[in-house]
Simulated scan of single mutants.
Amino acid sequence: MSAVRLEQVSVHFGRTVALAGLDLEVAVGETLALLGPSGSGKSTALKAIAGFLRPSGGRVFLGGEDVTDLPPHRRGLGVVVQSYALFPHMRVFDNVAFGLRARRAGRKEIERRVTEVLELVGMAGFRDRYPRELSGGQQQRIAIARALAIRPPVLLLDEPLSALDAALREDMIAELLRLRAELPDTAIIHVTHDQGEALALADRIAVMRDAKLVDIGPARELYQRPPSAFTASFLGSANLLPVRVLDIGADTGAQVRLGSLTLRAETTGTMLAGQEATLGVRPHRLTVHAEAAGGLPARLVGVQWRGNGFRLDLELDGLGPARAEVSTMDGLPALGERVGVTVADGCPLVPAGGAR
């Protein structure tokens, strides 16, 4: 039995469609990331599951039970929002105990379960502090502890890391991975616009755009073999370059023509020789060198230093813009000069079309 199932769930605000006919299923113990840009419908989907929004159409099921008409407090879910929403006038213990007291748990049960979840998130020594006395990462841990105290079958995380700095975000990703291992029967739905978070934390990723589900699948599979141009560009920042399929191999390989280059590519669906397609090329799979060395002719139009290397913006002759990542600028011409670009074999093919 699934932990969560949505059947054709839609949410409309007047003429505005915030979510359009979403079908989704999350297994017990699975972590699913809802990934997409702002306005894609991912947070709306989470609110429909939590009961904060009443669907305009479709049904919401939790553990096989239709909960579409149930209010949030009767769904038994744990929810962590971006702002953490801790009660500022309550100490940590009372914040975490709030849901248990609302369910009229006994004093001993409250003490035992609050202590248990504070230990689980590494905050056992902070039970008497107020939220204002905690860092952002510590507040996040308390928000998660409060959500877990009621032992929910489903934990909903709505952009829980977006307010944290980069270093603390990395620490919290590791913390969430540890927490997931400690809760093998809890389904987690994690809303994020950050592809790194989604790839690190999720068993599966659901990519959303314009209120609709675009693609869904195992995280590694979606990254390595994206089934659409949008997923290729959004999940991994792939350059989308037009190619012609020359030959299809017996397995998943194909030979393609990109400008003056002939390359081996990985197919992600049905492809035919002579077909126009799009090659999804991650920035690190482009090599940039002096034009005399060959490759695709291009112009270097932008350079950004990123600490561990450089991001190069290129204009490929006849092919359009592309982005590359290099570790050093040694041997490369100055900004505005001509360069040559080569592409690694094994990049995935996706159906032609689709905006980046």
Score class of each variant (00 low, 15 high):
Ser2Lys: 09
Arg5Val: 15
Glu7Pro: 01
Val11Gly: 01
His12Ile: 02
Phe13Met: 09
Arg15Lys: 14
Ala18Ile: 07
Ala20Tyr: 05
Leu22Ile: 15
Val28Asn: 06
Val28Gln: 10
Gly29Asp: 07
Glu30Gly: 01
Thr31Gly: 02
Gly36Leu: 11
Pro37Val: 08
Ser38Met: 04
Ala48Arg: 04
Ala48Glu: 02
Ile49Tyr: 09
Gly51His: 02
Phe52Asn: 08
Leu62Ala: 02
Asp69Phe: 00
Leu70Gln: 13
Leu86Pro: 00
Val92Cys: 06
Phe93Gln: 07
Asp94Gly: 07
Gly99Val: 03
Gly99Lys: 05
Arg101Phe: 04
Arg103Ala: 14
Ala105Ile: 00
Arg107Pro: 12
Lys108Ile: 00
Glu111Leu: 08
Arg113Trp: 04
Met123Ser: 03
Gln138Lys: 08
Gln140Asp: 02
Arg146Cys: 11
Ile150Tyr: 01
Leu164Val: 12
Ala167Met: 10
Arg169Glu: 08
Glu170Met: 14
Ala174Thr: 14
Glu175His: 05
Leu176Tyr: 02
Leu183His: 01
Pro184Ala: 11
Thr186Tyr: 03
Ala187Gly: 02
Ile189Asp: 07
Ile189Lys: 09
Thr192Glu: 07
Gln195Ser: 09
Gln195Ala: 14
Ala198Glu: 10
Leu199Val: 09
Ala200His: 12
Leu201Tyr: 11
Asp203Thr: 08
Met208Val: 02
Asp210Phe: 07
Ala211Ser: 15
Val214Lys: 00
Val214Thr: 11
Asp215Pro: 03
Gly217Asp: 03
Pro227Ser: 07
Ala229His: 04
Phe230Glu: 01
Asn239Met: 06
Val245Asp: 05
Ala250Val: 14
Val256Pro: 10
Leu258His: 07
Leu261Met: 10
Arg264Asn: 15
Arg264Phe: 10
Leu272Gln: 15
Glu291His: 12
Leu296Cys: 12
Val301Arg: 14
Gln304Ser: 14
Leu316Cys: 01
Gly320Ile: 03
Ala322Met: 05
Asp330Ser: 12
Asp330Ala: 15
Thr342Ser: 15
Cys347Thr: 11
Pro348Gly: 12
Leu349Gln: 03
Gly353Glu: 15
